[in-house]
Amino acid sequence: MLEARLVQGSMLRKVVDAVKDLVSDANIDVSSSGFSLQAMDTSHVSLIAMHLRADAFEHFRCDRPMSMGMSLANLAKVLKCAGSDDIVTLKANDDGDTVTFMFESPKEDRVSDFELKLMDIDSEHLGIPDTDYCATVTMPAGEYARICKDLSSIGDTVVISATKDGVKFTTSGDVGTANVTVRQNTTADKKEDQTIIDLKEPVALTFALRYLTSFAKATPLATHVTLSMTRELPVMVEYAIQDMGHLRFYLAPKIED
């Protein structure tokens, strides 16, 4: 029996909205530690890893680990029916082939429930090694989203170069070339305006802007995004889900000739 009650139900909707265009069907794995989702996009170029800890839920009961295969588009349709302040409760039987979502308004004067059919999805599970990254850039999520959007109108690949002064995004295409530099700023009054760079050594990697832009769909989740880079390894683009967990995207760098 699975029963999980999330007071900030809107977080679930933001997570699903962030990934539904990259991944169509995915297994949501539930265990005593919470909810996890790991899936590659259809072209196997990017990987999504989400974890929502059990202690994020006001009530969490998971008698035994289960894997719920779902169409993320359908899940998004169901979650769209929840009010932005609704409490969301998920229920599923151990041998069930459906999952029920219950939405309660804060004043508990409106309760709705939606039952979603589960699917059998065989997905290969990848082991993501812990990496000691050369450069970790924490910057305003809105700033990152804007840079991806702006540079996508100029080129289709971006070189991200992290140095101790700042992080530079460079692209070029038929239109011309563009550089955006975000300087380290650890003294901004508002924390959400700060850009912090933890650098072990400078690193510059080339990525497909299409995927980086797609990751920015997670912007509503958090004020900051963290880009972690090391030569010749996938970049990790991470959004914290408040203090409940994380949504991580991985993208392999393009190989220079």
């Binding site: 290969e124 990848l126 082991g127 289709d156 392999a252 000739d257």
Partner: peptide, 14 residues
């Protein structure tokens, strides 16, 4: 365009 390696080449499949 530069070649784009797939991810599984970086992560071990469990």
């Amino acid at each position: 365009a530069l070649p784009q390696p797939p991810l599984p080449s970086y992560f071990t499949s469990e």
